[in-house]
């Protein structure tokens, strides 16, 4: 499958999932609004803290708005298009990959594709954060950094989820690893220094989800720009390779299941 086919597949898939969402309107609306309010409270916490302290290790309130402009749009888009990203280890553990293996589509893409309603709440909130904190001139850079953020997030869940191919029961652990990345990404990156900063860049890459993108939006540096692009490309490619490498070890679960 080429890039064009991948996009066409996602478009067709979105159409179907959108139709399903509209069938369950009440759920769709409450989950979207719920996530939107959920996001408001996070930014409210930072609003309160920055009312007391002007800066935290050099970061200002505007930087936190940018953290959420990057995080909620990336997280929302991943939830919106790749809603099964939380279930990779579960699929492997339960032998549920059989369905995707029999289809002529890209196994990884098809497995990940699902529509999560909460994603819309994140996207609406994220758009408000963009309007409040990203100037128009920086929009192209912002969009590129969001793409990097998405790929790093997806890469991390693909790697941690694929560990189930090698380690067996890994669902809860992979869930914890995914949550950890998001938790670290939701705080000012300036509070982490030394070894912790290195770990959050190159071991648990939360720094590339929000910290470095926000730093680049505030003070652009070609060095960190190329490090971000290079790291994202290498990390995501490794994740895809790691998944397909693990897939060779996959054993069918012989599970009969209905797909709704």
């Amino acid at each position: 499958m080429g890039v064009k086919e991948h996009i066409s597949f996602l478009r067709q898939f979105s159409k179907l999932e959108w139709a399903t969402a509209l069938e369950y309107r009440a759920n769709f609306v409450t989950q979207s609004i719920g996530m939107f309010i959920n996001d408001i409270f996070w930014i409210f916490l930072w609003f309160l803290l920055f009312q007391r302290f002007d800066t935290i290790n050099g970061w200002e309130y505007r930087d936190m708005l940018r953290v959420f402009a990057v995080l909620t749009i990336s997280y929302g888009l991943v939830g919106f298009l790749f809603g099964n990203w939380t279930r990779i280890a579960r699929f492997i553990e339960h032998g549920s990959l059989d369905y995707y293996l029999t289809m002529p589509k890209n196994v990884l893409l098809h497995m990940l594709a699902k529509f999560n309603y909460y994603g819309l709440g994140d996207l609406v909130f994220g758009t408000a954060m963009v309007a409040l904190s990203i100037p128009m001139t920086k929009l192209p850079l912002y969009l590129l950094l969001v793409l990097c953020s998405i790929l790093v997030m997806l890469g991390w869940v693909i790697i941690t989820g694929s560990l189930a191919f090698y380690l067996g029961r890994f669902e809860h652990a992979s869930q914890a690893m995914r949550e950890s990345l998001i938790i670290f990404a939701g705080y000012p990156f300036s509070i982490f220094t030394g070894t912790t900063k290195f770990i959050l860049l190159f071991i648990i890459p939360a720094g590339f989800v929000t910290g470095i993108p926000v730093q680049l939006l505030t003070t652009f540096s070609w060095k960190w720009f190329f490090i971000t692009i290079g790291f994202t490309a290498a990390f995501f490619s490794f994740a895809v390779w790691f998944f397909y490498r693990g897939l060779r070890r996959y054993e069918s679960g012989n599970v009969m299941a209905m797909r709704g």
């Binding site: 409450t30 989950q31 719920g34 309010i37």
Partner: peptide
């Protein structure tokens, strides 16, 4: 039908307004 949205919002009430993440004295 789905109460997950209430769970998210109440959780944030406890986290932020309830002072779980930061003691209220710091606000």
């Amino acid at each position: 039908e789905d109460v997950r949205a209430f769970y998210w919002v109440y959780q944030k009430f406890i986290f932020v307004l309830g002072g779980m993440l930061v003691p209220i004295d710091v606000y």
